[in-house]
């Protein structure tokens, strides 16, 4: 074994993978904007991604808001700054936790489903059949998923913002004994539109990552049930890691402006 050869091979394989993802991404986006459009498939995806994700995103947000209020209270109480709880809750939720946690939950739910569905179609010749029946899988399968994703995750994050802040409010009022009016006033005072908007921008990027990873790994899955299983795992893991990485990058950019 020549160590240089194996390093070289790894680098080439990595570059090859990045290249394939880039080509896949540009093809997918191209087909999002060129007809024909399959409206009924888009609506189905919107319901699937948006509506059916509400419970899981809502549950995640409310418990996160609750634990956040509790934790920041016990922390701030040590230097008599309990009044900051409202601000910490609303900023952490809107800027970070709602987009990231909603992104990760949706990636587990939807990214995995996409990879499994498209992967199964790939290994059972359904993609081949589509291509021979005048239907481009990029238009028929991938574009609706990407468009629905980009439209729906911001809405889910908005819901998560509200539910998460409400969770913090519940704990603060009923467990920690804050005054309801003052708590809400503090929340409004500290919240800037940009906090919510930056969270929504993040959400759109995350959603694109989730759909792309789900579709990419599904589309390229090979070799029966095992291949589909591997594609599903790869889709979720790569989307989750990329979400966390892009979260940092976007936050960095946000503070730079």
């Amino acid at each position: 074994m020549n160590p240089f050869a194996s390093i070289g091979r790894t680098v080439i394989a990595f570059a090859n993978h990045i290249g394939r993802i880039t080509i896949f991404t540009s093809r997918s986006l191209y087909h999002c904007f060129t007809p024909p459009f399959y409206w009924h498939l888009l609506i189905r995806q919107i319901i699937e991604i948006g509506f059916y994700s509400l419970p899981v995103v809502g549950m995640t947000a409310i418990f996160t808001g609750m634990v956040l209020a509790l934790q920041s209270y016990t922390g701030f109480a040590r230097f008599n700054a309990e009044g900051a709880v409202a601000g910490v809750v609303v900023l952490s939720i809107t800027r970070e936790l709602a987009p990231v946690l909603a992104g990760l939950m949706v990636s587990g739910r939807i990214g995995a489903a996409m990879a499994a569905e498209i992967g199964t179609m790939s290994v059972t010749e359904q993609l081949d059949a589509l291509k021979t029946l005048s239907t481009d899988p990029f238009k028929y399968l991938i574009a609706p998923r990407i468009i629905a994703g980009i439209l729906m995750l911001p809405i889910l994050v908005l819901v998560a913002d509200i539910v998460g802040v409400f969770g913090g409010y519940l704990i603060s009022i009923y467990k920690l004994g804050f005054n309801s009016t003052i708590y809400l006033e503090r929340t409004w005072e500290i919240l800037e539109p940009i906090d919510v908007i930056s969270g929504l921008v993040k959400a759109s990027v995350f959603r694109l990552i989730i759909s792309l990873m789900g579709c990419f790994h599904g589309y390229h899955s090979r070799g029966g049930a095992q291949g589909v299983g591997a594609a599903t795992t790869n889709a979720v893991v790569s989307a989750s890691v990329l979400i966390l990485a892009f979260n940092y990058v976007i936050t960095e950019l946000y503070f730079a402006i």
Binding site: M121, E125, L130, S134, T135
Partner: peptide, 29 residues
């Protein structure tokens, strides 16, 4: 390909569509 009909080895039916929608798929193109 419009002039060609193909029966795939595993039939290659779209499993999100019903039987008749599968058969109607090439027609609706």
């Amino acid at each position: 390909l419009k002039k060609v009909g193909i029966l795939f080895q595993n039939a290659g039916l779209f499993d999100s569509l019903t039987v008749w929608e599968n058969v109607a798929f090439p027609l609706m193109q």
